[in-house]
């Protein structure tokens, strides 16, 4: 049993873990030009979450299945609408979000939509922490076992297929892990804001990094700093941490952009 005086420990640990895994996953997705898929998945988990909560099931399973269905549907539509993938993916994104919102009154589910959309870090519990630890472990296993393949797929996907790398299997694994990471991050920043944490730290470092590994480490360190400071400021100023972290992400990006204009070599 945690001492009530240390109630903030679980939310802080969760924030730090999310700060580590979201930008690491973001680095992988941005270098493979699949970040839109991550945003789509973030929104696609909503119907599954609502269904799971309405039927008192584990929201991770519901969100994971729903997120994967969204991703697979988008992949199928992408093949049909070649060259117009963004339009197809954004339509699926909007459709799944709308379905999730509709399910709440239809199932009369006791779901706080605002919490799912924008996060509620201060209400984090040990189940959230365990879920995030599982996502962290899965991501670590993928990176440690398949790093070179991930680099190959990112820089030359056709070449990776020709070299008989298990490209489809690795991509599917990456989708599953992205779904796990996104679901874990929902408590912290919600499905609307998670994309900022996936992208901002990576964009800050992508030009200066000379390898995917270096990009992941730098982005994770920045994510850690963003979530740690966001959580601290939120507690001191009595503000919601999720939106605060979202705003900090944009501030960081603007600061980086301004610094680059002053010193183009950065």
């Amino acid at each position: 049993m945690i001492d009530p005086n240390f109630w903030w420990l679980t939310p802080l640990l969760l924030a730090l873990l999310i700060g580590l895994i979201c930008p690491t996953t973001g680095a992988l997705l941005i270098t493979q030009r699949r970040i839109l898929l991550a945003n789509l998945m973030a929104h696609s988990v909503l119907p599954g979450l609502v269904l799971a909560l309405a039927f008192e099931l584990d929201p991770t399973i519901g969100g994971l299945i729903s997120g994967l269905i969204g991703a697979l549907l988008a992949e199928k539509l992408n093949q049909q609408f070649k060259g117009r993938e963004e339009a197809a993916m954004n339509t699926v994104l909007a459709g799944f979000t709308a379905l999730g919102v509709l399910l709440v009154p239809l199932l009369q589910a006791r779901v706080d939509l605002e919490t799912i959309l924008f996060g509620d870090l201060l209400a984090a519990n040990s189940a959230d922490l365990i879920r995030t630890c599982i996502a962290t472990a899965a991501l670590s296993v993928l990176l440690l076992s398949r790093y070179e393949d991930l680099v190959f797929i990112g820089i030359d996907p056709d070449g990776a297929i020709a070299a008989k790398r298990p490209v489809n299997q690795i991509r599917f694994l990456a989708i599953v892990i992205t779904a796990l990471v996104v679901i874990s991050a929902i408590t912290a920043v919600g499905i609307v804001l998670v994309i900022a944490l996936l992208c901002a730290p990576v964009l800050v470092h992508i030009e200066a990094s000379s390898s995917l590994r270096s990009l992941m480490l730098r982005s994770a360190a920045t994510g850690l700093l963003l979530c740690g400071s966001g959580m601290t400021i939120a507690m001191v100023a009595d503000l919601p941490p999720g939106p605060l972290i979202g705003v900090l992400c944009v501030v960081l990006l603007l600061a980086k952009s301004t610094a680059s204009q002053w010193n183009p070599s950065n």
């Binding site: 270098t31 030009r33 070179e148 680099v151 190959f152 820089i155 070449g159 020709a162 390898s211």
Partner: peptide, 18 residues
């Protein structure tokens, strides 16, 4: 994808693994 974060040496090494 020429914008991928990779050095010349790492890129050439990919040939070795093929």
């Amino acid at each position: 994808d020429w914008s991928f974060p990779i050095t010349v040496k790492q890129m050439v090494k990919l040939g070795q693994s093929c």
